[in-house]
């Protein structure tokens, strides 16, 4: 509960950034910061190596939360805990709680499969299924879950449109997903995730393997998606975090150093380490 209050304290500082659209959004964030997910003293290990040390953080609904920090700080592990993908790696384990709508996803009897349907994920490297066509890739999540949508072509079009890929691929839907460019593949992976209509979308450095133009498209897309989805994005690129996110969390060697509204964190960091990082003194 501490973390929620912390974010509430951090949020209401309107007006200071001038009368821009950005601050209007920040004000909206301040007025309706419903908590979608929340971690409580979340710890994670690879074998004996502890990579997350008691992280408590709340993630507001229908907002973009960016997780930044130098490499090896545990930011990827953190979001992989949010949909229980961390435990897939051999030797990996975790402790603490992750609440989704107030329910701990690590509680005994909770099926990680069901968690992942509600909390989707996009990976650092685009990973479309090479043995499937573009359309089948989009439908893969539904089909693999045993769902046969009544109008598959509508699902494909909607998801691809949401991922801003429809216009580019509408005539080549039966081609292999692997035939697309890197940026298109990544948007295909986003469409594949969106087709399942998740509530939360986790993005693990989705642009790190892309060129600047493809990166810009994905960032634009994130902006459009946040009306409908709660988004958590890991990035090593601070400009990107500043551009796309409403809230930012700064991690350093497995600890959550500082968390708050993006504008505030980048302009008036509270901790010396945060300031060092965002001003480029290390990492």
């Amino acid at each position: 509960m501490m973390a929620v209050e912390a974010s509430r304290e951090a949020a209401p500082t309107p007006g200071s950034a001038g009368d821009t659209a950005r601050s209007a959004e920040a004000r909206a964030a301040a007025t309706a910061p419903a908590v979608k997910m929340q971690t409580e003293a979340l710890r994670a290990w690879f074998g004996a190596h502890e990579v997350l040390k008691a992280v408590s953080l709340s993630i507001p609904e229908r907002r973009v939360t960016a997780v930044i920090g130098p490499s090896g700080c545990g930011k990827s592990t953190f979001i992989r805990c949010l949909n229980r993908m961390h435990e897939v790696v051999p030797g990996a384990r975790s402790a603490g709680a992750v609440l989704l709508d107030g329910v701990d996803i690590f509680e005994r009897g909770v099926d990680p499969v069901l968690v992942r349907r509600r909390v989707g994920m996009v990976f650092q490297r685009a990973n479309p299924f090479p043995a499937m066509s573009i359309a089948d890739n989009v439908l893969a999540g539904l089909r693999l879950n045993g769902v046969r949508p009544r109008h598959p072509e509508e699902v494909v079009e909607r998801a691809l449109a949401q991922a801003a890929l429809w216009d580019e691929v509408k005539d080549i839907l039966s081609r292999s997903g692997a035939s697309l460019s890197g940026g298109q593949q990544q948007r295909l992976c986003i469409a594949r995730t969106l087709a399942l209509e998740p509530e939360v979308v986790l993005m693990d450095e989705p642009c790190s393997a892309l060129d600047p133009i493809a990166t810009a498209r994905i960032e634009e897309l994130i902006h459009e998606l946040k009306d409908r989805y709660t988004i958590v994005i890991v990035t090593h690129n601070m400009q990107q975090a500043a551009r796309v996110s409403d809230f930012t969390a700064f991690f350093y060697i497995g600890e959550l150093v500082e968390h708050g509204e993006t504008d505030a964190l980048f302009t008036r960091p509270q901790k010396a380490r945060t300031e060092d990082y965002i001003t480029g003194r290390f990492g």
């Binding site: 949909n83 993908m85 897939v88 499969v113 069901l114 968690v115 992942r116 349907r117 509600r118 989707g120 994920m121 990976f123 490297r125 990973n127 479309p128 299924f129 090479p130 043995a131 499937m132 893969a140 999540g141 089909r143 693999l144 879950n145 045993g146 992976c189 594949r192 995730t193 399942l196």
Partner: peptide
């Protein structure tokens, strides 16, 4: 990465193995 992609779509492991890994 393909196994991860399948699991992250909320697909049970056995279906990921049969329909994604085996198919590939």
């Amino acid at each position: 990465s393909l196994r991860e992609a399948g699991l992250a779509l909320g697909v049970p492991r056995w279906r990921v193995v049969l329909k994604v890994v085996l198919r590939t």
